[in-house]
Lab assay of single mutants.
Amino acid sequence: PPDDERKKAEKAARSGNEEKAREILERLGYSEDEARELAKRLR
């Protein structure tokens, strides 16, 4: 489910793995720019 994926992205971002967070968010349908912004904010 998307919620689980989003949680994974948050966890990745918090542990400093912004790249992985961005990949997950892009898979969820965010654009590259949106995903980058979100990954930064989740950190």
Rank of each mutant, 00 (worst) to 15 (best):
1 P>L: 14
1 P>K: 14
1 P>W: 14
1 P>Q: 14
1 P>F: 14
1 P>E: 14
1 P>M: 13
2 P>I: 14
2 P>V: 14
2 P>Q: 13
2 P>R: 13
2 P>N: 14
2 P>E: 14
2 P>T: 11
3 D>G: 13
3 D>P: 12
3 D>N: 12
3 D>R: 10
3 D>E: 13
3 D>T: 12
4 D>L: 13
4 D>N: 11
4 D>V: 13
4 D>S: 14
4 D>Y: 12
4 D>F: 11
4 D>I: 14
4 D>K: 12
5 E>W: 13
5 E>V: 11
5 E>D: 11
5 E>F: 09
5 E>S: 10
5 E>A: 10
5 E>K: 07
5 E>N: 09
5 E>R: 09
5 E>P: 10
6 R>T: 07
6 R>K: 10
6 R>G: 05
6 R>D: 03
6 R>W: 15
6 R>L: 15
6 R>H: 14
6 R>E: 08
6 R>I: 15
6 R>Q: 09
6 R>N: 05
7 K>P: 05
7 K>Y: 07
7 K>R: 13
7 K>A: 12
7 K>F: 08
7 K>S: 11
7 K>W: 08
7 K>H: 11
7 K>M: 12
7 K>C: 14
7 K>N: 11
7 K>Q: 13
7 K>I: 10
8 K>H: 12
8 K>A: 14
8 K>T: 10
8 K>D: 11
8 K>Y: 07
8 K>E: 14
8 K>P: 05
8 K>W: 10
8 K>V: 11
8 K>I: 10
8 K>F: 10
8 K>L: 14
9 A>L: 06
9 A>D: 04
9 A>W: 02
9 A>E: 06
9 A>S: 04
9 A>Q: 03
9 A>Y: 04
9 A>V: 06
9 A>G: 05
9 A>H: 06
10 E>K: 10
10 E>W: 02
10 E>L: 09
10 E>N: 06
10 E>G: 08
10 E>Y: 05
10 E>M: 09
10 E>R: 12
11 K>L: 14
11 K>Y: 03
11 K>S: 12
11 K>N: 12
11 K>Q: 14
11 K>D: 15
11 K>W: 02
11 K>E: 15
12 A>D: 03
12 A>H: 10
12 A>S: 07
12 A>E: 12
12 A>R: 05
12 A>Q: 09
12 A>P: 03
12 A>Y: 09
12 A>W: 06
13 A>R: 02
13 A>E: 03
13 A>N: 03
13 A>K: 02
13 A>G: 04
13 A>F: 03
13 A>Y: 02
13 A>M: 06
14 R>Q: 10
14 R>P: 04
14 R>F: 05
14 R>S: 07
14 R>N: 07
14 R>I: 11
14 R>T: 07
14 R>L: 09
14 R>H: 09
15 S>M: 15
15 S>L: 11
15 S>F: 06
15 S>N: 13
15 S>E: 15
15 S>P: 02
15 S>K: 08
15 S>A: 15
15 S>W: 06
15 S>D: 14
16 G>M: 06
16 G>K: 06
16 G>S: 05
16 G>H: 07
16 G>W: 03
16 G>V: 04
16 G>I: 05
16 G>L: 08
16 G>E: 04
17 N>K: 06
17 N>V: 03
17 N>M: 09
17 N>A: 06
17 N>W: 13
17 N>L: 09
17 N>E: 09
17 N>P: 03
18 E>R: 03
18 E>N: 05
18 E>D: 08
18 E>F: 11
18 E>K: 02
18 E>S: 07
18 E>T: 09
18 E>C: 15
18 E>L: 15
18 E>V: 14
19 E>D: 12
19 E>K: 13
19 E>Y: 03
19 E>A: 15
19 E>T: 12
19 E>F: 06
20 K>H: 09
20 K>F: 11
20 K>P: 04
20 K>R: 10
20 K>E: 14
20 K>L: 15
20 K>Q: 10
20 K>M: 13
20 K>A: 14
20 K>Y: 13
20 K>N: 05
20 K>I: 11
20 K>D: 06
20 K>G: 09
21 A>K: 01
21 A>F: 08
21 A>G: 03
21 A>Q: 04
21 A>W: 09
21 A>M: 09
22 R>M: 11
22 R>P: 01
22 R>Y: 06
22 R>D: 00
22 R>W: 04
22 R>S: 04
22 R>E: 02
22 R>G: 01
22 R>F: 04
22 R>A: 08
23 E>S: 08
23 E>K: 12
23 E>C: 11
23 E>L: 09
23 E>T: 09
23 E>M: 08
24 I>K: 01
24 I>N: 01
24 I>Q: 02
24 I>L: 08
24 I>D: 01
24 I>S: 02
24 I>T: 01
24 I>G: 00
24 I>H: 05
24 I>P: 01
24 I>E: 02
25 L>M: 03
25 L>N: 01
25 L>E: 01
25 L>G: 01
25 L>H: 00
25 L>V: 00
26 E>H: 07
26 E>W: 00
26 E>I: 15
26 E>S: 06
26 E>D: 02
26 E>V: 15
27 R>V: 05
27 R>L: 11
27 R>T: 08
27 R>Q: 10
27 R>D: 06
27 R>P: 01
27 R>H: 10
28 L>T: 01
28 L>R: 00
28 L>A: 07
28 L>Q: 02
28 L>W: 06
28 L>S: 01
28 L>E: 02
28 L>I: 08
28 L>D: 01
28 L>Y: 02
28 L>M: 14
29 G>A: 00
29 G>H: 01
29 G>M: 00
29 G>T: 00
29 G>Y: 00
29 G>E: 01
30 Y>D: 00
30 Y>S: 01
30 Y>H: 04
30 Y>V: 04
30 Y>L: 10
30 Y>W: 06
30 Y>P: 01
30 Y>M: 11
30 Y>T: 00
31 S>L: 02
31 S>P: 08
31 S>G: 08
31 S>Y: 00
31 S>W: 01
31 S>A: 05
31 S>Q: 05
31 S>K: 06
31 S>M: 03
31 S>N: 10
31 S>F: 01
31 S>I: 01
31 S>H: 03
31 S>R: 02
32 E>A: 09
32 E>S: 07
32 E>V: 06
32 E>T: 06
32 E>I: 03
32 E>K: 09
33 D>R: 05
33 D>G: 05
33 D>F: 06
33 D>M: 08
33 D>H: 08
33 D>P: 07
33 D>L: 08
33 D>T: 10
33 D>I: 09
33 D>E: 13
33 D>V: 08
33 D>K: 09
33 D>A: 14
34 E>K: 03
34 E>T: 05
34 E>C: 10
34 E>L: 07
34 E>S: 04
34 E>P: 00
34 E>V: 05
35 A>Q: 02
35 A>W: 04
35 A>L: 05
35 A>F: 03
35 A>C: 05
35 A>T: 06
35 A>V: 04
35 A>R: 00
35 A>N: 04
35 A>H: 01
35 A>I: 07
35 A>G: 02
36 R>Q: 08
36 R>G: 06
36 R>D: 08
36 R>S: 07
36 R>P: 01
36 R>Y: 12
36 R>C: 05
36 R>N: 08
37 E>L: 07
37 E>T: 03
37 E>A: 07
37 E>Q: 09
37 E>R: 08
37 E>D: 13
37 E>N: 08
37 E>F: 03
37 E>V: 05
37 E>M: 07
37 E>I: 08
37 E>K: 08
37 E>W: 06
38 L>S: 01
38 L>E: 10
38 L>I: 15
38 L>F: 01
38 L>D: 00
38 L>V: 07
38 L>W: 00
38 L>G: 01
38 L>N: 01
38 L>Q: 03
38 L>P: 00
39 A>W: 00
39 A>F: 00
39 A>D: 05
39 A>P: 00
39 A>K: 01
39 A>R: 00
39 A>G: 02
39 A>L: 09
39 A>Q: 01
39 A>C: 10
39 A>N: 01
39 A>V: 14
39 A>E: 10
39 A>H: 02
40 K>M: 07
40 K>F: 00
40 K>S: 11
40 K>N: 12
40 K>A: 10
40 K>V: 06
40 K>Q: 10
40 K>I: 05
40 K>E: 15
41 R>H: 14
41 R>K: 13
41 R>T: 06
41 R>V: 03
41 R>E: 12
41 R>D: 12
41 R>Y: 03
41 R>F: 06
41 R>M: 10
42 L>G: 03
42 L>E: 04
42 L>Y: 12
42 L>Q: 04
42 L>R: 01
42 L>T: 04
42 L>A: 07
43 R>Y: 14
43 R>V: 15
43 R>A: 15
43 R>T: 13
43 R>E: 10
43 R>F: 15
43 R>G: 13
43 R>P: 06
43 R>Q: 11
43 R>N: 10
43 R>K: 12
43 R>D: 07
